[in-house]
Design a protein around this nucleic acid. Structure first.
Lengths: 111, 111
DNA sequence: GCAACTGTAATCTATCAGTTGACAGTGTAA
DNA sequence: TTACACTGTCAACTGATAGATTACAGTTGC
């Protein structure tokens, strides 16, 4: 466990272990919690008040967890919306850092 | 102009002091850092490669910090995009918890 | 006055979250 | 085998909105 920094692609290492690795999409956690609860995805989508297609897209990591959906998930799992939005923020930050060209932007010093 | 959905406290109260208070929009922090650096907003908008109107909307808290803009701000201030997106996530979470009706969604047990 | 910056507002475009409807594959029980 | 329920995807559509552009009024300083 101590040196899991060296591993890259195994399944269940928490994302923080390797800063170079893509942080997990919140959909992965949702899928885990769902499996834990033994509910079908279809039934849960209906509970959340969203379409099963939309829910599936989030679970698959193809659509983000929006504030609206975070509020619904927060109610469903008994925690607030904060966890889901922060997970999504970390996910977005990782991708934005790699996809946005900021080479023309200078870095100013805080004095 | 007075009452947006939730008023932003202009100056001196740190947002964390009262958990019931709206967390500060990242635009407030940007404005502070800008003032600290002594740069005009117009010049900074040009540095970031965005329109000054768009930049002004973010500073005023009327537009969110998107992943793209977070990457630009991260470069400008020398930190990554993560800080800005997490601030935005906390801001969104606070509002989502108050604006989304989740009364019809049940809370499922974890085990 | 004139110039530069600021704060808003209107309009337009492009992107995208989310819906509905459809279709194929996979169990699984009758 | 048939039938049913769930899953994974796709296409088309709608609504909302990030962002650019243009424009105009109010600063502040030369």
């Amino acid at each position: 466990m101590a040196d899991d920094k060296t591993r890259r692609n195994t399944v269940d290492i928490p994302a923080k272990a390797d800063p170079n690795r893509c942080p997990s999409h919140p959909g992965e956690l949702i899928a885990d919690l769902l499996e834990d609860a033994g509910k079908s995805k279809m039934a849960v989508a209906e509970m959340l008040g969203i379409s099963r297609q939309q829910f599936h897209s989030v679970l698959a990591g193809r659509k983000p967890v929006t504030p609206d959906m975070a509020a619904r998930l927060g109610k469903l799992f008994g925690n607030g919306p904060g966890l889901w939005l922060r997970m999504q923020a970390n996910f977005d930050a990782w991708h934005a850092a790699r996809e946005v060209d900021v080479s023309a932007i200078p870095t100013i010093k805080a004095a």
